[in-house]
Simulated scan of single mutants.
Amino acid sequence: MRKELGKWLMDIAKYLVTAVLLSSIITDMGNSWILYLSVSFSVVVTLSVGLWLVRDKKKGSELWVQLL
């Protein structure tokens, strides 16, 4: 269940980036820095939460042991 929700959140981040890129290509958005800032923040939040939910705790702990 957690992995599916994480994948879903990563898809949302991908769709946000795609929507902003397509809309900026199709229309002249001018100086809409607030839109880019809010979408960037939303992408960072959804992507980080999605990656956090998808991570494998077992592999993560093995990675730290390998680094030490």
Rank of each mutant, 00 (worst) to 15 (best):
18 T>V: 12
50 G>L: 00
39 V>A: 02
68 L>W: 08
65 V>Q: 11
43 V>K: 01
5 L>C: 01
58 K>L: 03
32 S>M: 09
47 L>E: 09
54 V>S: 06
21 L>R: 15
47 L>A: 14
24 S>R: 06
15 Y>P: 01
22 L>E: 06
49 V>G: 04
19 A>R: 05
21 L>W: 14
1 M>L: 13
57 K>P: 10
3 K>E: 14
59 K>G: 07
22 L>A: 07
7 K>Y: 03
48 S>K: 07
13 A>Y: 00
43 V>I: 06
39 V>P: 05
63 L>M: 05
62 E>Y: 13
57 K>C: 04
60 G>E: 04
3 K>C: 14
30 G>F: 01
15 Y>G: 00
62 E>R: 14
43 V>C: 04
2 R>E: 05
45 V>D: 03
60 G>V: 05
62 E>F: 10
43 V>Y: 02
28 D>Q: 00
15 Y>T: 04
40 S>F: 07
59 K>P: 07
25 I>V: 15
24 S>W: 10
40 S>P: 10
59 K>R: 11
38 S>Q: 06
52 W>Q: 10
55 R>N: 06
58 K>D: 11
13 A>D: 02
42 S>Y: 04
28 D>G: 00
27 T>V: 08
29 M>F: 09
17 V>S: 14
48 S>W: 12
46 T>N: 05
9 L>R: 01
42 S>I: 11
52 W>P: 04
15 Y>M: 03
51 L>P: 02
6 G>D: 03
13 A>T: 00
38 S>E: 14
59 K>I: 12
21 L>G: 15
63 L>T: 04
29 M>V: 09
21 L>A: 15
47 L>C: 08
27 T>D: 14
44 V>D: 09
52 W>E: 12
20 V>T: 07
34 I>T: 09
42 S>P: 02
63 L>F: 07
60 G>D: 15
29 M>A: 10
5 L>I: 10
8 W>K: 01
7 K>R: 11
33 W>K: 14
30 G>K: 05
19 A>I: 15
64 W>K: 07
2 R>S: 12
48 S>T: 13
24 S>D: 15
9 L>K: 00
29 M>S: 13
61 S>V: 08
30 G>E: 02
52 W>N: 11
20 V>P: 06
39 V>G: 06
15 Y>Q: 04
52 W>G: 09
37 L>T: 08
9 L>P: 02
14 K>G: 00
16 L>Q: 11
63 L>D: 03
50 G>S: 01
12 I>M: 04
21 L>K: 15
